[in-house]
Write a protein that binds this DNA or RNA. Sequence first.
DNA 1: CTGTTAGCGCATTCAT
DNA 2: ATGAATGCGCTAACAG
Lengths: 363, 363
Amino acid sequence: MTVTLADVAARARVSPATVSRVLNGNYPVAATTRERVLRAVDDLDYVLNGPASSLAAATSDLVGILVNDIADPFFGIMAGAAQSEIGVPGDGTARAGGEKLAVVCNTGGSPERELTYLTLLQRQRAAAVVLTGGALEDPAHQAAMAAKLGRLADAGTRIVFCGRPPLPENDAVAAALTFDNRGGGRRLTEHLISLGHRRIGYVAGPQERTTTRHRLEGHRAAMRAAGLTGTAVSPEDDRLTVHGPYDRRSGYEATLELLRREPGVTAIVGANDSVALGASAAVREQGLRIPEDVSVAGFDDLPFSVDAVPALTTVRLPLYEAGARAGRLAMGTETPPPGGIATIRAELMVRGSTAPPRGDRPA
Amino acid sequence: MTVTLADVAARARVSPATVSRVLNGNYPVAATTRERVLRAVDDLDYVLNGPASSLAAATSDLVGILVNDIADPFFGIMAGAAQSEIGVPGDGTARAGGEKLAVVCNTGGSPERELTYLTLLQRQRAAAVVLTGGALEDPAHQAAMAAKLGRLADAGTRIVFCGRPPLPENDAVAAALTFDNRGGGRRLTEHLISLGHRRIGYVAGPQERTTTRHRLEGHRAAMRAAGLTGTAVSPEDDRLTVHGPYDRRSGYEATLELLRREPGVTAIVGANDSVALGASAAVREQGLRIPEDVSVAGFDDLPFSVDAVPALTTVRLPLYEAGARAGRLAMGTETPPPGGIATIRAELMVRGSTAPPRGDRPA
DNA sequence: CTGTTAGCGCATTCAT
DNA sequence: ATGAATGCGCTAACAG
């Protein structure tokens, strides 16, 4: 019923092996023979049987990209960039083999689903896997991940981290691109402090996530350095920090809570831009103006942040560039950084949503 | 080196066939035997060889979800919803077979890449394919798509459309969920007209896309019904319409162009919410206020639209529900609508970004 | 440069 | 309810 490689071989009057060589292009074949084979492929509308090919070759052309939340442009931008480096030449052909199939898998932030997806990709004998976004800090899960990644690597799957801190013993991970979340968080809060803010509310991401912790640590480091809090996490820190998911609703609700706890806050920092947008809505709903009464800041610099009113002060992460680089690393078309680890700089973007607090002036 | 089914069989002291039956669960196996097999699976850390399994069974557990732009939440929301219905039980196990691997493929809006991805999924013998978003109206591409989808369907791949109009002769497509873009566009413009607007600029999406055309047709139908334009596309229509990609930058630039062409416009409609956000920025940059001087409206009601200032009047599409339903249709866990086609309602959301034009009052 | 041969690991007959 | 045998379609030696 379905056309096989043998059918193509018969029509082109060559052996199946020759057809295979033409399609995979990894072997010298006479030009005229190649032509004949390709014509037969087109004539018969032949499509390579991926499973058979993968079985025989003991590797597949599948590349998995794991994301925490596919509806969040933070991940969409990275995933799209990675995919554009990995997959699909875009000339519509794909008659032959060799094209990678870059696919995005949405874990929804669930550690179980993360592991399950890795198993599924292992089952498919994936050529590479890119893991984006922060990791869960639960020791049991980290151990399970390390074990799973080790097995994947042993089976020949190349593993790349993008926006995720490297594992302690990362024999498995070929390369890790990690964002300077701590530095970005610190510079952002330093900016607010230099404007004169002293009581700064922080709407953090979910607990036990590396991204959450690093951004918060940067914030607290800046506060400490300015003598605004103790050296350890103090009750004061806790009172001005609320955790929640990385979405606008969390920013909205946490900000209402912060304003209730401490009406004297003059600035709210969101763990990311979506949170900051929700925070802005809450601030306004309380009859306060941005930035005159309360400054608001975010993190990531997603495309919509510049269109917020007023434009959102935030920390820019080069998501597209990082994703593209991760894609090239997964393909093996870029040499890994020394030690397999590269830290990607986070740049402070000062815009209209932050200003000196009422009746104050910059330091 | 790598553990195979035969290894599991040896350890469990059963035949390979029995192990296969346990893993696929489609066959009666004694409880004690099953236990023994599953224990051996865990002991050996066995992972099914997907390619071998797919080759023997002539079908795979891969499900593809095609999107135009993975960085756009419009697609991310639908894809995430579909994926949550299709894949990954989330209990972390996935020891056995039967789990579907739902993966998202980013075409970037390119018709060639769309076809290439379909070929790649065909090569993998995908169990199902979900195509989201509008289609290109180029006849050559449509013919190529119809042919490709036909071949996929013949090979046993279930095909579902989500937010895409059905094909003329859709034997191949199991089900098509299509948004009422025309109706939504019409109701939105009717709303503006009822507020008293007469000169309404329209920032459309890219040419030759069904979504673009349908939304624009709805807009023009409302204009015509109000006697604000001729029955056909008139020069006037053209003068107040600018096409561009579905992003904020397009909205920004097109709006500057519209304000230059016709300073008397009192309202700008964006083809989607991102475009509307860019339009808002442009309007403000010209020193005009929203909605006092110029009303702005969008389409889709993405999560950030309610946080715009003022909150964006738009047309709500139930993206999550549609994606989830498409996922179930792809899995075969929901019966297709009569005729295989269902139209999904678009709901007008009136918010603060639209108001009567200066010195006017509602009709 | 090309043909021949022998599995890859599993699902599925058919037996029992 | 379980075991034995066959072949899915292709790639990768190995010859020539």
